[in-house]
Computed example of a mutant assay.
Amino acid sequence: MYADFDYPEEVAPLVRYMPLPEGVEGSEERLFENWKTFISDYTSILPKKANPATKKTDSQQ
């Protein structure tokens, strides 16, 4: 899937098989922290699209 999006740099820290920077030790905790950072910053990384699951119907308005 990483390749399907042309190897975006923003996603590289989430890919387990990517080499870590020199001097950085990998761990499951580090991977979870990378995901936490990515998710908190996702609005600046991912395109903004309406989520049909959260779209209000006429009866909800």
Rank of each mutant, 00 (worst) to 15 (best):
I39N: 00
T43M: 10
A50R: 14
S59Y: 05
K49I: 03
T54M: 01
Q61E: 02
D58V: 12
K49E: 01
E29D: 12
N34I: 04
D41F: 07
A53C: 00
D6A: 05
A53T: 09
S40V: 03
T37Q: 05
K55Y: 01
D4G: 04
V24A: 14
E25N: 12
R16W: 09
F5Q: 07
D58T: 12
F32Y: 14
E9Q: 10
E25T: 15
W35A: 03
F32I: 14
S27G: 12
K36C: 04
E22R: 14
T54Q: 03
L20G: 11
K36P: 03
L46W: 12
Q61H: 10
N34L: 03
K55D: 11
K56H: 10
A12G: 01
Q61P: 07
K36S: 10
G23V: 15
Y42S: 08
L31A: 15
N51L: 06
T43P: 06
E22Y: 13
T37R: 00
D6K: 03
T57Q: 11
A12H: 05
F5R: 02
P21A: 14
K49M: 03
T57C: 07
K55L: 10
P8F: 01
Q61Y: 13
G26E: 05
T37K: 07
S27F: 05
E28V: 15
L31K: 12
L46Q: 06
I45T: 06
S44H: 00
Y42T: 04
F32P: 03
Y7L: 00
Q61D: 08
V15M: 10
L31E: 14
I45A: 08
L31S: 14
K36G: 01
T37F: 05
E9R: 09
V15T: 07
D58H: 10
I45R: 00
Y2Q: 01
Y7S: 00
E28L: 14
N51K: 13
A50M: 13
E28K: 15
A12E: 09
G26N: 01
Y7P: 07
A50L: 13
E9V: 11
K48H: 00
D41N: 02
E29G: 10
E9P: 07
M18G: 08
V24S: 13
D58Q: 10
T54F: 03
F32H: 13
